[in-house]
């Protein structure tokens, strides 16, 4: 497949989103609240890793890109690098991201561009991710006082990272700003049914939440990368 430099830019950004969130979800292994949930999070992580491999391979060597880049060279959204927090934080992050990714892939699948093949395949998988996050948002938001409070806190805490998703991205072949309204409607509807209010407040802003696409990341990301990359860097080319 021939790709242009602009396509590489977009492939890297979308690939990094998938890779980083996949790694975060993988951190739940051995720690999830119940076995079924552990399996579910691992499956979602695996789908995302598959997407990441295809996307990063469009931009270069997948292993070099994943394991040998410095923090500033990653182009993922700040949302996906946020730590797992409690289970509600993980679910809120997934709800925000999977809703976005579903809208995005749905458009890319029909656009006929370089991402159409992957998007047509992945949009069906992402529908299950979004559904999973919706189900948990309803259970936690509409559950006990404690679960409601935790879910509310998580939705609020991550809200400020959601504006970045709709900033223009070179080479993606679709207008990302146009996804914002359907995203707000979709997420707002789920939160409403869960008895939660749509958070207020800035979603990007003067204090620069949301510059992951420009290579500026939040403090926890460096530590995540250190863990993700150290084996490959310590033993280059090792395999089993």
């Amino acid at each position: 497949m021939t790709t242009t430099a602009h396509t590489d830019t977009a492939a890297l950004a979308l690939g990094d989103d998938a890779l980083v969130l996949s790694h975060r979800l993988g951190e739940w292994m051995g720690h999830a609240p119940v076995l079924e949930e552990e399996v579910a999070l691992a499956n979602i992580a695996l789908d995302l890793l598959g997407q990441a491999r295809i996307l990063l391979s469009m931009a270069g060597d997948e292993d070099d890109l994943a394991y040998l880049r410095e923090e500033r060279a990653f182009r993922n959204l700040q949302l996906v690098e946020q730590p797992n927090g409690d289970f509600a934080h993980t679910i809120a992050r997934q709800l925000y991201f999977s809703t976005y990714q579903h809208l995005l892939y749905d458009r890319l699948a029909t656009g006929g561009g370089p991402f159409a093949g992957l998007a047509a395949k992945a949009v069906k998988e992402v529908a299950y991710h979004r559904d999973h996050a919706e189900q948990w948002t309803l259970r936690l938001g509409d559950g006990t006082d404690l679960s409601h409070e935790r879910m509310r806190r998580a939705c609020e805490a991550l809200w400020r990272f959601t504006g970045e998703m709709f900033q223009p991205l070179e080479g993606v072949g679709t207008d990302l700003t146009g996804l914002e309204t359907p995203w707000l409607e979709s997420v707002g509807a789920v939160l409403g049914r869960a008895g939660l209010e749509t958070p207020e407040g800035p979603r990007t802003g003067a204090w620069r939440a949301g510059a992951g696409r420009q290579g500026l990341h939040t403090e926890p990301f460096g530590r995540m990368l250190a863990e993700m990359q150290h084996l490959h860097r310590s033993h280059p080319g090792a395999s089993w």
């Binding site: 399996v39 499956n43 979602i44």
Partner: peptide, 13 residues
């Protein structure tokens, strides 16, 4: 339905 994700990505429990 017990879980939308089971022993592999393609199965539900």
């Amino acid at each position: 339905l017990l879980s939308r994700f089971s022993s592999t990505a393609c199965k539900a429990l």
